[in-house]
Design a protein around this nucleic acid. Structure first.
Lengths: 215, 215
DNA sequence: TAAAAATGTTAGACTAATCTAATATTTTTT
DNA sequence: AAAAAATATTAGATTAGTCTAACATTTTTA
């Protein structure tokens, strides 16, 4: 895929997320390109099966197109997080750089970023980060006890409302939306080493883990 | 500048570094492109004053061309070092990724990399890294006492040969070529906090600094 | 529902980067 | 120094991505 095709696909996906119908006019506006140009690119993308399209009719991403768009989105969001958290750039500074880096061809590079960030599932706006197969994370929460190591989750609920449990969570500064990264796992007692909000490390017993719901 | 123009400029610079004359044929080989294509790009670059050229005559980079090439080289070498030292990729893996990243347009991004690496003057092959003005570092050594904070230097000599001094250096595992990064400066006694070979931290008194030559 | 407005498509041209085939110049060899 | 070989250049075609002008279709409105 060329860089231009990737940018069209991104725009197509953005429109499909928020609007009723994808039109040539909207794509043209979004990419700041004239309609006839968009029209010919639409034909090109349809030929390559990234979209379904018949002239004067609606434009829709195919599964292939959506997956491709999500893979680019993944690279974009991982990059933004990386520029911010690892390189210490400001949130307002990262977008333009990520727009360029998202087009790099290197699984190695992006997988390493993913790893350094602890396989985050959401960017700081709360937007989900597609996985390396171009799939969006399930929005179904699971108990932390069912989750995997070296991955960042967000607290989405609790399965126990005893005051002592809630007080404990409070003392850790844990609230809905807080990030919990599993850094180690004790096979013997099923306790987990965790890092909270990318800052404090502690250990959760199996019982704690069973009562924390995360996404 | 287009990505293609940048790649030609890089090739031109590489040739100018190691060979007598830059020929259309050599450029074509290096970039794996046919000679007529190279010829037309040569004309284009000459029009834009990156090279001096008259047909059937020799090809030479202008100052403008050389500076541009060195700025790309700077981005390439900083990126390689970053991928290796910060992201932990293997030396054999970094080249292809750096070939892509070197074309990014973002002073912010590369300055931040430079900063994170401690403003290195040489890459791990010992190749010099051009500065942000496209100038190669002076190969003239200076006493460490004349150097600036937050910068990586390489030990290039000593100004004192007393056994006690050399034994001291040995005990720190310091030898010719070792990297010395100045991490802090004590204005009162002119002593310096340093990191040696990217590992051990220590403090050098003013007297030590005066007797270490670095590049 | 017919006219007007909005949107979409086709036709044809342009630029950057590439190619092959043909031609020109320079360099090497005999 | 003439012939042969190597190298360089020109001419003309191709592809991707863009444009403007003209035409077609659909949607809105009166």
């Amino acid at each position: 895929m060329t860089l231009t095709e990737e940018n069209y696909l991104k725009a197509l996906h953005r429109l499909s997320m928020k609007e009723e119908a994808i039109t040539v006019k909207r794509i043209a506006q979004m990419l700041n390109i004239k309609m006839p140009t968009v029209n010919s690119m639409i034909n090109n993308l349809a030929e390559k099966k990234f979209i379904k399209y018949e002239k004067y009719k609606s434009i829709e991403l195919t599964e292939k197109g959506r997956k491709q768009a999500l893979l680019i989105l993944r690279k974009h969001r991982l990059t933004e997080l990386f520029l911010k958290d690892v390189m210490g750039l400001g949130w307002e500074e990262v977008h333009d750089i990520a727009e360029q880096i998202e087009h790099l061809q290197s699984d190695l590079f992006f997988n390493r970023i993913d790893e350094m960030l602890g396989h985050p599932k959401f960017d700081p706006h709360g937007e989900p980060i597609p996985d390396s197969n171009g799939r969006l994370p399930q929005l179904k929460s699971n108990p932390l006890s069912h989750c995997v190591i070296n991955t960042k989750y967000q607290l989405s609920g609790v399965l126990n409302n005893e005051a002592s449990f809630l007080t404990y969570l409070n003392s850790l500064d844990l609230s809905l939306g807080s990030t919990i990264e599993i850094t180690s796992l004790n096979e013997f007692d099923k306790s987990m080493g965790v890092k909270l909000n990318s800052k404090n490390k502690t250990v959760f017993s199996a019982l704690i883990c069973q009562n924390l719901l995360v996404i």
